[in-house]
């Protein structure tokens, strides 16, 4: 019984982290039509900005998380505006550009901070115990923040004019522009929102796991898996898929072991894609 509940809690926690990452990833694809290979790089950068704020500038951790989100959002904004925008309609160029930018971020971090993992701990230690289940406080806090951030992202996309404009651009760019929505203004903002989410997730998650210059690679793989399962471009699909992946990963690893558990996850994703090739909530083609 303890195992079942523990695995469920771990699954929820993993799901919330994946959801926050996947939202940004799928947002960029849904609105701009770019598969952002630098997503893991922004996650990583968020972790290192938070680490630098705490360890070098002596700032409190919550301020560091905010700084990480803002710094990665600002960098994402500039990257989209100055580089990506120039080749936005050429999918191959955007792919290479984002992949290259990811390598630049990783190499830059190795040059500045070195290849070793620095000491970066979550400021709140301790555990919560109930009915024989032990949950680290840090995980609960991160879960709550991720959940709140998902809510804020949803509100932003579905309840504000900014979000409506973005959704209109993703539905049909030509019509949206004819209605006065300026893609050149909105695209960098959408990219900034997505990279800011990735940076914030990095700042929240790396202190409870570890911060290394290559921590972004598995994050990119996980984000990819989630958004493909959910349907590229679908926010609802990405969120549902994130929790599904988190739960499957947790239960499969607990009951089948780390090796077979990972295999089970991919087998289930394959089955879903066989039945629904566009993912859970995907469309056959983007409107924009």
């Amino acid at each position: 019984m303890v195992e079942i509940v523990s695995a469920g809690l771990i699954g929820l926690s993993l799901g919330a982290q994946y959801a926050l990452l996947a939202l940004g990833f799928t947002l960029i694809f849904g609105i701009i039509g770019v598969v952002n290979f630098a997503h893991g790089g922004f996650y990583l950068l968020g972790g290192y900005v938070a680490y630098a704020c705490v360890s070098m500038a002596g700032l409190p951790y919550p301020v560091a998380v905010l700084a990480a989100a803002l710094a990665t959002a600002a960098l994402g904004y500039l990257f989209e505006l100055l580089l990506l925008e120039r080749v936005i309609d050429d999918h191959l160029s955007t792919l290479i550009l984002t992949l290259g930018f990811s390598l630049v971020i990783t190499t830059g971090i190795v040059l500045v901070f070195g290849p070793d993992a620095p000491l970066f701990q979550f400021p709140v230690q301790g555990v919560v115990r109930f009915l024989g289940i032990i949950v680290p406080l840090a995980n609960i806090i991160v879960f709550a923040i991720c959940f709140a951030a998902i809510g804020v992202a949803y509100a932003l996309i579905y309840r504000t004019n900014f979000g409506r404009s973005l959704r209109a651009l993703s539905e049909d760019r030509a019509v949206a522009e004819a209605l006065g929505i300026r893609a050149r203004l909105m695209f960098p903002l959408a990219f900034a929102l997505a990279t800011g989410l990735a940076g914030m997730t990095g700042a929240l998650v790396t202190p409870i796991l570890s911060l290394t210059p290559h921590a972004g690679e598995p994050v990119l793989a996980a984000s990819f898996l989630v958004v493909i399962l959910g349907g590229l471009g679908s926010l609802g699909g990405a969120t549902l898929a994130a929790f599904l992946v988190g739960m499957i990963e947790a239960y499969a690893a607990v009951y089948l072991g780390g090796s077979k558990g990972a295999l089970m996850l991919f087998v289930l994703v394959l089955i879903v894609l066989l039945v629904r090739p566009t993912g859970l909530y995907g469309r056959t083609a983007r409107g924009a």
């Binding site: 990963e249 607990v254 090796s259």
Partner: peptide
């Protein structure tokens, strides 16, 4: 003997298995 997939970054599920 327990094994995990290389590239795993979050060991929480495996840890639950080890603790049991």
């Amino acid at each position: 003997l327990e094994y995990y997939q290389r590239g795993t970054t979050n060991f929480a599920p495996i840890v639950t298995r080890i603790i049991s």
